[in-house]
Amino acid sequence: MAFKAIGTNGLGAAISGKITDSDNNELAQLITLNAGMGSFLLKPQSGKTYKANISFADGSTKSITLPKVLDTGYVLSVYQPVKDSVLVRIQASATLQQSKVIVVAQSSGETIFASPVTLSGPITSLWLDRRSFPSGIAQLTLFSADSEPLNERIVFIKGDDKMQLALKTEKAVYKSKEHIQLDLSAKDGLGAPTSGNFSVAVIDASQIPVEESAESTIFSNLLLTSDIKGYIERPNYYFTAQTDTADTALDNLMLTRGYRRFEWNTINTTINTKPAFEPEGLGSAISGKVTGLDRKPSPHATVKLLSVRAGLLKDTVTDANGRFSFDRMFIADSIKFTIQARDANNSNKVRIELDAGPEVDFGDKKDAKNNTAIATAARKKSISSK
Score class of each variant (00 low, 15 high):
residue 26 E to F: 07
residue 130 R to F: 08
residue 89 R to G: 07
residue 138 A to T: 12
residue 64 I to T: 01
residue 34 N to M: 11
residue 114 A to R: 04
residue 155 V to A: 09
residue 124 T to K: 13
residue 73 G to A: 02
residue 37 M to V: 02
residue 68 K to M: 04
residue 141 T to C: 05
residue 114 A to K: 02
residue 115 S to M: 12
residue 46 S to Q: 13
residue 38 G to V: 08
residue 44 P to N: 05
residue 93 S to Q: 02
residue 122 P to R: 14
residue 105 A to Q: 02
residue 65 T to F: 03
residue 146 D to W: 08
residue 108 S to C: 00
residue 40 F to D: 08
residue 53 N to A: 10
residue 120 S to C: 06
residue 145 A to F: 13
residue 134 P to F: 01
residue 41 L to I: 07
residue 70 L to I: 06
residue 113 F to R: 01
residue 24 N to M: 06
residue 46 S to V: 14
residue 70 L to S: 11
residue 82 V to W: 13
residue 45 Q to M: 12
residue 89 R to T: 14
residue 71 D to K: 11
residue 116 P to G: 10
residue 77 S to Y: 09
residue 150 L to D: 06
residue 27 L to S: 01
residue 63 S to F: 05
residue 115 S to T: 15
residue 44 P to V: 06
residue 95 T to F: 08
residue 73 G to H: 05
residue 107 S to H: 01
residue 107 S to F: 01
residue 83 K to W: 06
residue 94 A to M: 10
residue 52 A to Q: 04
residue 139 Q to V: 15
residue 133 F to D: 03
residue 72 T to C: 05
residue 152 E to V: 12
residue 122 P to Q: 15
residue 124 T to N: 13
residue 87 L to W: 12
residue 155 V to E: 09
residue 119 L to H: 11
residue 71 D to S: 08
residue 43 K to P: 02
residue 111 T to A: 04
residue 115 S to G: 09
residue 56 F to A: 03
residue 154 I to V: 15
residue 64 I to G: 02
residue 76 L to D: 12
residue 108 S to F: 07
residue 85 S to P: 03
residue 48 K to T: 03
residue 94 A to F: 13
residue 102 I to E: 03
residue 108 S to L: 07
residue 72 T to I: 11
residue 53 N to W: 05
residue 62 K to Y: 13
residue 133 F to M: 02
residue 24 N to F: 11
residue 145 A to C: 09
residue 53 N to R: 04
residue 30 L to C: 04
residue 87 L to D: 09
residue 107 S to K: 00
residue 59 G to S: 08
residue 53 N to S: 08
residue 117 V to I: 15
residue 65 T to R: 04
residue 92 A to N: 04
residue 92 A to W: 06
residue 52 A to T: 02
residue 93 S to N: 03
residue 52 A to E: 03
residue 60 S to A: 11
residue 29 Q to H: 10
residue 107 S to G: 04
residue 60 S to I: 12
residue 85 S to C: 01
residue 32 T to H: 11
residue 66 L to W: 13
residue 148 E to V: 15
residue 32 T to G: 10
residue 125 S to F: 11
residue 34 N to D: 15
residue 74 Y to M: 01
residue 150 L to V: 15
residue 92 A to C: 04
residue 66 L to V: 03
residue 127 W to T: 13
residue 142 L to T: 13
residue 101 V to Q: 04
residue 74 Y to T: 03
residue 102 I to Y: 01
residue 40 F to A: 07
residue 41 L to D: 13
residue 152 E to M: 11
residue 92 A to T: 04
residue 36 G to N: 00
residue 133 F to Y: 11
residue 63 S to H: 04
residue 117 V to T: 09
residue 81 P to V: 00
residue 66 L to C: 11
residue 46 S to G: 06
residue 119 L to Q: 10
